[in-house]
């Protein structure tokens, strides 16, 4: 269990990194924390011929930029909890990232790495879809912004093209009053989820005005609950009828079925976790109002 050979390139600046990625195309992978990529390389399930080390790049800012919060690709997971901007504007994100990995992994792993790796049950892809994030992909040709819902295609497959790398994400700030929560179910702490459910609400202090719900572990990429807004709009925060809404929005969903968790079990978790996340999001909203 040692990696196949590769060439190593350490980029000092973004343009250098992009030039290297352009030069080597499909054969190159950027490496940041390496907490997802290197296990795959050691198992020889990933065999890039070129690794472009981007750790020295200046991509670790977290800042408010007009109507959104920007999080750089090199922000390490342990940092989210220390950023008051995240806790203040994105409670579901703040909760969700608490479920990522173990302490040593969290100190090293990065936002960009986790998103690019696109594990189907990882927290960050689900949170990006939930919060309507735009993923910023750059290449030597320029930059493009990919809505999270279009970015995650399948397990370990994204819409990144050869020569492109994620440089950060932009999370649109909630327009009015908002709340959110995230629930996850895993066999052990730090494991990838069997099911997770993230909820964001907009509200007027009394009732829900809009809602989004995203699940992971349902399919090979995060899944948005299509009817979440319709089902929850107008429901009072004090009695959101969470169970009925969770049942209704998951009706017709056929989750993954494997030896670790059957479709039926996953479906039951979807309902239960969605209900719990909704209930808590409403409680938080009432406390804040």
């Amino acid at each position: 269990m040692r990696p196949a050979p590769f060439s190593y390139h350490k980029a000092e600046r973004l343009d250098q990194a992009l030039a290297l990625l352009a030069e080597f195309g499909e054969d190159a992978r950027p490496i940041a924390g390496g907490q997802s990529l290197v296990p795959m390389m050691n198992l020889r399930l990933a065999r890039p011929s070129h690794l472009v080390d981007i750790n020295a790049l200046d991509l670790d800012t977290i800042e408010l930029r007009s109507d959104h919060l920007h999080i750089g690709a090199l922000v390490r997971h342990e940092r989210y909890a220390r950023e008051s901007l995240i806790a203040q504007h994105f409670p579901a994100f703040a909760e969700g990232v608490e479920w990522i990995g173990h302490p040593t992994i969290r100190r090293r792993g990065t936002l960009g790495g986790s998103i690019s790796h696109a594990d189907p049950t990882a927290e960050l892809p689900a949170l990006c879809v939930l919060l309507g994030a735009e993923i910023i992909a750059q290449s030597a040709e320029g930059s493009r912004r990919i809505p999270a819902a279009e970015f995650f295609i399948s397990a370990y497959v994204t819409s990144l093209e050869a020569g492109e790398m994620v440089t950060g994400i932009d999370l649109p700030l909630p327009k009015g009053k908002s709340s959110g929560a995230f629930e996850e179910f895993a066999e052990r702490s730090g494991d990838f989820a069997i099911i997770s459910a993230g909820v964001t609400l907009e509200h007027d202090g009394r009732a829900i005005t809009d809602a989004r719900v995203v699940w992971s572990g349902v399919d090979l990429a995060p899944v948005m609950a299509e009817r979440a807004g319709d089902l929850l709009r107008g429901k009072p925060l004090s009695a959101p009828e969470a169970e009925a809404a969770a049942q209704a929005m998951s009706a017709g969903i056929t989750p993954l079925d494997d030896p670790m968790a059957s479709a039926e079990f996953r479906h039951s978790l979807i309902v239960e976790l969605t209900q719990r996340a909704l209930t808590r999001a409403c409680e938080k909203a009432m406390q804040a109002s």
Binding site: M1, R2, Y8, K10, I31, G34, Q35, V38, P39, N42, L43, L51, D53, N55, H102, P103, T104, I105, R107, R108
Partner: peptide, 29 residues
Amino acid sequence: CAHGACGACTVHVDGVPRLSCLTFAVQCD
């Protein structure tokens, strides 16, 4: 385990615990 899942290889890189099985030595110049 050589895949970052057991912590046995933890060392300090510039004072911070790091999994040395998920780190290439060339990255530690």
